[in-house]
Simulated scan of single mutants.
Amino acid sequence: MLWSFVLLNVILVTCIWLFNKLTCGICKSSRHLVGKVIVISGGNAGIGYETAKDLAARGARVILGCRDEGRGTAARDRIVAATGNQDVHYRHLDLASLKSVREFADNFNKTEKRLDVLINNAGAFASEFKKTEDGLLLEMQSNHFGPFLLTNLLLPLLKSSAPSRIINVSSIAHQGGSIDFENLNAEKETEKTYGKINIYCNTKLCNILTAVELDRRLKGTGVTVNSLHPGIIVTDITKNDTLFRMIMPLLKMFCKSTWEGAQTTIHLAVAPEVASISGQYFRDCREGKPNLVAQDPELAKKLWEVSEKLVKLK
């Protein structure tokens, strides 16, 4: 009886593992990117690193926007060594500081002649209940407000470089998100009532809604914007959550590797067949459907307008 139970569980685990591997989307494009300029936030670790390495291997000029100089320069050196592409660079970018975002964008606009792909990859997970120097909730700013401001400040160069692409790394976690404009920065929360996972879900919903509204604003410019779910991946982003640290060994049996998790981002950055697709949500290198809230154009428009005010864009 015991052996039958063990065998059934082994078969179940194997089937789940096989299903995950067989349905995992892989970028099949062999397109080269010589002469193209790419910015990727958080390109020093996890799926961001794998994405940056792939794009560098295709010959692109890759700018790693990272908060930590040591990790950023180390990642740059590893990518250069792995790809032979010397045109990979680290620049300081802390999305939790609007000043840092503005300095990064100002420096980039002054020193670069073009921008072909912007990948908003960096983000936080299960951050503490804390406000930034800008008075914004740490995780909301790291995952939404910071990338929102960065994208807007780089838009003129993206437009002048068209056809160009913007990619927002979201998550299936958006399914659990909601938008309350009276509590967008956890104004109604205390340290005791603050829900780390809820906030993360909200930020991922914001990533998709931002792409929906930006797509509307970019019609006719030659700039596309899409969002994506990379898959369930155990990376350093989960280190802040005790539960995830405890179950990490089990999760790794079923999760994608960081290389597999980077595939949809790479697909959106290079594949010719998505060059004219915009405002969509992808997973496993295929178009998918986010929940109905994430497709609400009026909600997307209002979130954009509120975000503009909070980051003092105008």
Rank of each mutant, 00 (worst) to 15 (best):
F282Y: 15
E191A: 15
E50L: 08
K256F: 05
Q175D: 12
G231A: 05
N120H: 09
K110W: 01
I63M: 07
N109M: 10
L149D: 01
R78A: 15
R286K: 15
L7V: 05
E182I: 04
E298S: 12
A52W: 05
K309W: 09
D77P: 05
I199C: 14
S161G: 01
P249K: 11
Q175V: 05
G48A: 13
G72P: 08
R114W: 00
N291Y: 00
G279R: 00
D68I: 06
H92M: 09
L250N: 05
F19N: 10
L251A: 15
N207S: 13
G35P: 02
V88W: 02
A186W: 05
L136K: 04
V270W: 04
T132F: 00
E189D: 15
N168Q: 15
A74P: 10
P156Q: 06
Y281T: 02
L2E: 13
G25K: 02
M1P: 10
E298I: 02
N226M: 04
I11E: 06
Q141L: 10
T151F: 01
A186F: 06
L214M: 15
G146E: 03
K28T: 13
T23Y: 06
Q175Y: 11
S29G: 04
E213K: 11
R165N: 01
R31T: 14
V10R: 09
L153M: 14
K289V: 10
S161R: 00
R71N: 15
V37W: 02
G59E: 00
E191V: 13
T151I: 01
H144E: 03
S307A: 11
K204P: 03
V274I: 14
Q175A: 10
S41A: 11
T235H: 11
A105E: 08
E103M: 09
P272S: 07
V10A: 13
N168A: 14
L184H: 07
D106K: 15
P147K: 01
M1F: 04
E69S: 12
A262N: 11
I11V: 14
C15F: 06
N120W: 07
R61N: 11
S227G: 09
N120Q: 12
P230Q: 10
T203H: 04
G135K: 13
R114V: 00
F148N: 04
K196T: 14
I277H: 02
K192I: 11
L205Y: 00
V88K: 03
R245G: 10
G135A: 12
Q141D: 14
V88N: 03
Q295S: 03
R61D: 06
L157K: 13
S178A: 15
